[in-house]
C-alpha cells in the first residue's frame, strides 16, 4: 500500500502569530459577509510562509478551521496552484522559468548551471536545507530573460556570473537572521 504524504496527519500544533491573525481578519473583511472562503489563497500564502515553508496536512486543516471550511476545500485548492508546496522545501526556493521566451535566451543553460553548481536535480533540496531547485512556467519577465525567482523575488537577465553572485548573497543572508524577507503579511497593509 502506498501512503502519500498528503494523507499523513501529524497532529503537530500549528497556529499563526497574533499579528498575522489580525491580518487574516482584515483580509476576510475585504470580502462580503459569508464569503470568507475568498480569503483562502492569500491566507494559504501566509500559512506557507509562516508555518514551515510548505503546506502540511496540519497546516491545511488549521487554515480550514480558521476560515470555517471543510478540509477538502483547502486541500483541493492547495493541490491546484503551483505556488503552494506540498512537500518540505529549503529556505530558498529557486524557481527557474523554462517557458519558450526564457528558454531561447539562455534559460535552459542557467538551469543546467544551477544543477551543476548546487549538485542537485530539479525538485531536490541541498543537504544543508538551504536551496530547493524547481522549474516554473512563464514568470512574466520575458523581456528580461532568462528569469528566475527566489521565494517570489525576481532575478532577471541572468548569466553564470549573476548566478554565482546570487547564491553568495543568499548564503550570506541565511547566516544573518536580521535580513528581511518579502513576506505576504508585510505586503498587505
Amino acid at each position: 500500500m502506498i501512503t502519500h504524504r498528503l494523507h499523513v496527519k501529524e497532529n503537530r500544533p500549528v497556529a499563526f502569530s497574533e499579528a498575522t491573525l489580525k491580518k487574516v481578519r482584515e483580509l476576510i473583511q475585504q470580502y462580503p459577509e459569508g464569503k470568507q472562503k475568498s480569503a483562502l489563497l492569500p491566507v494559504l500564502h501566509m500559512a506557507q510562509e509562516e508555518l514551515g515553508g510548505y503546506l502540511s496536512v496540519d497546516v491545511m486543516d488549521y487554515v480550514a478551521s480558521l476560515l470555517q471550511l471543510n478540509p477538502i476545500e483547502v486541500f483541493e485548492v492547495a493541490t491546484f496552484y503551483s505556488m503552494f508546496y506540498l512537500e518540505p522545501v529549503g529556505k530558498y526556493v529557486i524557481e527557474v522559468c523554462r517557458t519558450a521566451p526564457c528558454a531561447i535566451c539562455g534559460g535552459e543553460e542557467i538551469l543546467e548551471y544551477l544543477k551543476e553548481k548546487l549538485q542537485i536535480g530539479v525538485g531536490e533540496t541541498t543537504p544543508d536545507g538551504l536551496f530547493t531547485l524547481k522549474t516554473v512556467e512563464c514568470l512574466g519577465g520575458c523581456g528580461y530573460a532568462p528569469v528566475l525567482q527566489v521565494n517570489t523575488q525576481f532575478h532577471e537577465q541572468l548569466d553564470q556570473v549573476a548566478i554565482d553572485r546570487l547564491l553568495d548573497t543568499l548564503r550570506k543572508q541565511a547566516a544573518d537572521p536580521s535580513s528581511a524577507d518579502l513576506t505576504w503579511a508585510s505586503q498587505f497593509c
Binding site: K37, S38, L41, H45, Y81, S82
Partner: peptide
Amino acid sequence: HPGAGAYICGEETALLESLEGK
C-alpha cells in the same frame, strides 16, 4: 487579491472561481 500560480486563472470565469477561493 493574489493568485497562486495558475495560467488558467487569466480566463475570466476561472479568475472568478479563484477569487471565490476555489
